[in-house]
Nucleic acid binder design. Structure first.
Lengths: 109, 109
DNA sequence: CTATTATTTGGTTATTATGCCAAATATACC
DNA sequence: GGTATATTTGGCATAATAACCAAATAATAG
């Protein structure tokens, strides 16, 4: 495999990995509806401020969100809205997987 | 947050997480062109058979691939091709991130 | 049945991720 | 300046990942 492809795979998988956590995916989905401050995620996700702050940093490092400080609060925004278009496909993966499991049960074994 | 959404976020993030590794993303991209046997990934990715096998299992558990044994070999296939449609968006995330970094350099700071 | 090839699994180790608490920082308000 | 609020960072404990080697399993060929 050439070096260029390797680097590219690393960059792309880094973005996917950033979205590959329930709390971070929740954050991304919420940001799809508009900007939010950190405190809103703390409430929604039910985890510590410090934890949310670190999740937001992972998303930021991956290039998915940007932040802006206004007054005492920091507001986050989705930087590349197309990531929300993944959802439909993810649902399909999950649905297909569930059907498969049903079939497995149907066939004894 | 209601229990249903939580479960759903977990399921969706599990799929993204499965794709969030360079070797597994390579595998997914290759499978986009057609079925492949394990040995092909071993060669392409330059890692151990055991490592590839475990990566394939992660993809399988996530519902992304299916396998079929034929003779001595095991062939893997993409089960839900839409995941390849992520790539364009991922590239956009990376590109936008790179531009941003260029701007940061432009502005002293 | 034995040897060979392809793949998976068990076991170990090193690295990374996650979450909390406490402390540091930044901003606004009085 | 002093206090309160919002967020980030340092430190730590625990859990999850990733890679390798060696051994187990499965299938074919001889």
């Amino acid at each position: 495999m050439d070096e260029g492809r390797k680097t590219y795979l690393e960059a792309k998988s880094r973005v996917l990995k950033a979205l590959g956590h329930p709390t971070r995916l929740l954050i991304a989905e919420e940001l799809g509806r508009g900007e939010r401050c950190v405190c809103e995620f703390v409430e929604m996700a039910g985890v510590d401020y410090s934890t949310v702050s670190r999740h937001l940093n992972v998303l930021k490092q991956a290039g998915l969100v940007e932040d802006e400080k206004r007054g005492k609060q920091v507001f986050y925004r989705l930087r590349v809205p197309c990531v929300l278009s993944f959802m439909e496909c993810l649902e399909q993966v999950i649905r297909t997987g569930a059907e498969e499991r049903m079939k497995m049960i149907g066939q004894d074994q």
